[in-house]
Amino acid sequence: MNEFELDCYDYELPPECIAKHPPAVRSASKLLVVQRGDGRLEDAATKDIAALLPKGALLVVNDTRVVPARLKGLRATGGRVEFLLLTPIPCMVVNIDKEGWSHAEVEGLVRSSKGPRKGERIELGRDIAMTMGEKGEYGRSVVTLHWQGDLASRLDENGELPLPPYLGRPQEDSDMQRYQTEFARVDKAGSVAAPTAGLHFDAAIRDSLRNAGIETATVSLYVGYGTFSPVRAEDIRDHVMHAEYAEMTAETAEQIRRAKAEGKPVIPVGTTSLRTLEGAHAATGAIEAFEGWIDIFIKPPYTTKVADGLFTNFHLPKSSLFILVCALAGRDLMQRAYAHARDTGYRFFSYGDAMLIL
């Protein structure tokens, strides 16, 4: 079995290891420190991350905000429809109608017992509706979204958070607050999933980082539903990565260049931040400001051009994200790290514990 076969990136995980609910305290998670140099594994706590990071490290976080992008509507026939908005709000080309309504052509997942017809208008809640367009693969469709006022407000009023499917439960009150990172900005609303590594940080941890002289820089990657999509190709080189919209400001680029020049490690918080750094570098050939779509698939053999490590969660088997960490730290070391985490009571996936790869 070679490193390009999907089965190489599988591992066993009992259902009881999957974290289904958020912890009461953000920073209460366990942290597995993985040293790539000697393969050492160290059990630690996320609250102590400031002492575990290399001196002067620069953390790079994703500041996008999750929107309640799942909407439920009714057809004129009475049939129920569910729509999951996939197009990030900042990427929409918005037109204003004479009657005060706005509209934009967007992409989303449409689910219905009997598919709506092209041109059919479906009410999705108060002051928000859609008109069906062309249907695509895997349930994706192009629709025209109609709304009055501010779209983010309409989603907040009418929508539900698109929680990961593996949680296997509907949204609860605690999710509204906990499925949002400390770094999320209101003007960066548009992700359909949380950049979950950021969920571990709270005000106390951020204070400890500042006190330790560890700076934080921000990037924006609007997480798409493709983050939950399985890798279907048996040879991972045949996998087509979903595209996501990313932004890196000139200020962040300068922070990273300065850290590199001073020999300070750049540690992304989450795979979304890492893919933004590496995707922007692939697009520009340097550490420069960037704004656009990235579809970088980080797989073995890949050498990072910007990132010097990674703070992340534990990922689904056979997923593009598990393949990413294997590219970063080596498949054998990651398999050993995941087995250690499984056997010593770590919690996995979005609401689970964390890993620091150095």
Rank of each mutant, 00 (worst) to 15 (best):
F322D: 11
Y346S: 14
Y225V: 15
Y351K: 12
K264E: 05
P170Q: 04
M92K: 03
S29I: 06
L52K: 10
M334C: 13
I89M: 03
E12L: 09
A44D: 14
F83L: 14
F183H: 10
A327E: 05
E172V: 06
K47S: 15
D150W: 00
W101N: 10
K30T: 04
P300S: 09
D43T: 01
R336G: 01
P116W: 00
L58G: 12
E244T: 03
H103P: 11
M176R: 15
G133E: 00
S112W: 11
A250K: 13
D175V: 00
G139V: 02
L53N: 04
F201T: 03
P22Q: 08
T304N: 14
I256M: 05
P230H: 06
E12V: 11
A197R: 07
T276H: 01
R75F: 09
I89Y: 02
R206N: 13
M132P: 01
R275K: 10
V81E: 05
P300E: 06
A69Y: 07
P317T: 08
D187P: 07
A193Y: 11
G226C: 12
Y9G: 11
E244M: 03
N95V: 14
L209Y: 06
K264T: 05
D150F: 00
V81Y: 05
V34L: 11
V25Y: 08
L58C: 09
H315R: 04
R65S: 13
D308V: 14
D97H: 11
H21V: 14
R65N: 06
G213C: 02
Y166E: 02
Q148L: 13
V231C: 08
E160I: 05
A327H: 03
G119I: 01
D343H: 02
P116I: 02
R178Q: 07
P54V: 01
Y346N: 13
V142L: 12
L316I: 10
K135I: 06
T196A: 00
G78W: 02
F4Y: 05
P90G: 07
P317D: 13
R257G: 13
T272C: 06
E3A: 12
